[in-house]
Design a protein around this nucleic acid. Structure first.
Length: 572
DNA sequence: GCCGTTTTCGGCCCGACTGTTTTCAGTCG
């Protein structure tokens, strides 16, 4: 549904329709994408709930209703008749927007990427007003870049690359303050580019140093205060050079998201202020009243400080206005890790090694949860080997009393929702994690039923990585998340946030959905070796983006309380 | 298309960089 509204916006843009109407469609698309409830169900039960969201008006509501009822949208179908659909992908080319595309189409009858390339090669572009030789070269470059498109990167890569850039600049430039902003700071599951902010008296030296980084393959722009580069790995990075007294304002501005910033600037305007990357100004006399520190901006706008992870334009400003933001979970709240593998299956370390490492993280407990027999390629445990492992855990526990070691399993959900081990065996364990590792291409209904049935088993405590997605590599399998969450609630099953940076499943939006429906979560590293225990932080980031507090996450609980939840004696 | 402590009509977030101009339009974030 979000994609349909975005497509309407794109077509209207090429048609040079009213820009504010276009923005409204864009905004509607973004709102729908970020909703923490199911649109189809809500529009039938309680359309007022949607209409009450700022940015959703009568027109959008009507189109949503139409889409739910008929599956199509008359306006979009009409618009599609008016321009060739092959124009739309051209919007993705760098430095090419709706205006130019429209001109190419109308004046040179260009309607595909290939025709555009040909026209540039034949030097026809320069015949148009406002176009020259450089325009042609830029178009050809943009087409080349588009064809080797890199897409988005995992958060862990984004953090690594931005940290390296920050350290590189720190080592070469005299600076008071330097930080990575953007989606890296918001800890989004994937990042599209890197934004670095730096304060420096010698602005041109900072820019020069940046564009001369050894990994630069392309300089997209390089001005007095701003530069954009492409790094060897295909990731774009931007640098902004600032004065000390603007650093906080710039940090706010470039941390975004766009939706959050637009809402914040609208609020500022209503209050008689103007915000930009240099500070907060009074409109009346233009006097700057904040800029050095980010927290001043929120304070002067009469909002409680909004953590970067929440800045997605998902209602956080309204909550901050009422001083009712949730107190988000932090890494230090985590008291244990409930999902990890050992050498017995596809892990690389022993139980002793994992437990010892757990004590170094300051954990009170861990759970050993190796794979079950169906996962043959991981040498999954059958009943006999699982019983042996239980005995071994008892022995290790006696040796390392500092940490509680729960006996567990990550049991496969077979087709039809049956579990891979008998109840009789599962009953001997402290913790049972269920997950799907096979037959990914079932229909939405079949997959949902399969998972819901598995959760009905009385011994299942946690459903692991429910959508099976691998970020930037594998799409999630089709499931109806609302039904899964509801089944979890009915059966007192917790949902896992798999902290592996290529999974992060549940997603932030689904975390919030689960919380709102009253389901508990667990953040697990799914470690297959000692280093992977560090992944816990990414799970915490996602939980924070899903507005979770320690209370929503069972592995922040003291051991006794955790046991009551796992025994299904207590839930919420 | 959306919205209202100035408005049901008339506004709607803000600035940097580039290439083409000779004061600015288009694009981007």
């Amino acid at each position: 549904m979000a994609a349909i509204f975005a497509e309407i916006a794109n077509i209207l843009e090429i048609q040079e329709s009213n820009p504010f109407r276009i923005r409204s469609f864009r905004r509607a698309a973004q709102i729908i994408e970020n909703l923490s409830f199911n649109v189809t169900g809500t529009i039938q039960k309680d359309p007022g709930k949607l209409r009450a969201i700022p940015g959703i008006g009568d027109g959008t509501l009507q189109k949503i209703e139409e889409l739910v009822k008929t599956g199509t949208c008359e306006e979009l179908e009409k618009l599609k008749q008016e321009i060739p659909s092959s124009l739309l992908p051209m919007l993705k080319l760098q430095n090419l927007g709706p205006k130019k595309i429209s001109v190419f189409w109308k004046k040179l009858n260009i309607s595909t990427l290939e025709e555009l390339e040909k026209a540039a090669l034949q030097q026809k572009i320069r015949t148009l007003p406002g176009m020259g030789e450089k325009s042609e070269a830029k178009i050809l470059k943009a087409i080349k870049n588009y064809r080797q498109i890199q897409g988005r990167f995992q958060l862990d890569d984004g953090i690594e690359i931005s940290t390296n850039l920050v350290n590189y600049l720190k080592s070469k430039i005299k600076t008071n303050r330097i930080a990575a902003a953007g989606s890296v700071r918001r800890r989004r599951e994937t990042v599209g580019d890197i934004d670095i902010l730096i304060t420096c008296k010698n602005s041109s030296k900072a820019i020069q140093t940046f564009v001369q980084h050894p990994d630069v393959t392309q300089v997209l722009a390089s001005g007095n205060t701003k530069a954009s580069i492409v790094l060897r790995r295909g990731l774009q990075a931007d640098l902004r050079v600032l004065e000390d007294n603007s650093f906080g304002a710039a940090l706010q501005y470039f941390t975004g998201s766009k939706a959050h910033n637009v809402a914040l600037r609208e609020r500022a305007k209503r209050m008689g202020y103007k915000i930009n990357e240099y500070g907060l100004f009074k409109i009346q006399d233009g006097v700057k009243i904040a800029g050095a520190e980010e927290k001043e901006i929120y304070h002067l706008l009469e909002l409680s400080f909004i953590p970067p992870e929440m800045r997605e334009g998902r209602g956080e400003i309204e909550q901050a206005d009422k001083q009712e933001l949730p107190l988000l979970i932090e890494q230090k709240d985590i008291k244990g890790d409930l999902h990890m593998h050992t050498k017995a299956t596809d892990g690389q370390n022993s139980i002793v090694e994992m437990a010892t490492a757990g004590t170094k993280f300051g954990y009170d407990y861990i759970a050993i949860t190796d794979h079950s027999q169906a996962l043959a390629m991981a040498r999954g445990l059958n009943e006999e080997r699982l019983l042996q492992q239980i005995e071994e855990i008892d022995k290790v526990s006696a040796k390392i009393p500092k940490i509680k070691i729960l006996k567990g399993i990550e049991v496969d959900i077979l087709s039809g929702g049956k579990l891979d081990l008998r109840d009789q065996v599962l009953s001997k364990l402290d913790i049972v994690i269920a997950s799907v590792h096979s037959q990914f291409n079932l229909s939405k209904m079949e997959m949902t039923d399969r998972i819901c049935r598995a959760m009905e088993n009385q011994y299942v405590n946690i459903l692991a990585h429910p959508t099976g997605r691998l970020l930037t590599r594998r799409e999630p399998y089709l499931i109806e998340m609302e039904k899964i969450i509801d089944a979890a609630l009915q059966n007192r099953v917790c949902l896992e946030i798999n902290a592996h940076p290529s999974r992060l499943d549940l997603s932030d939006v689904h975390c919030r959905m689960a919380k709102e429906m009253g389901v508990l979560l667990s953040i697990n590293s799914d470690s297959h070796n000692l280093q992977m225990l560090n992944y816990m932080q990414y799970g915490v980031f996602t939980a924070r983006r899903g507005w979770l507090t320690p209370n929503d996450v069972i592995n922040t609980y003291p051991f006794k309380k955790l046991c009551r939840v796992l025994g299904k004696k207590e839930y919420n």
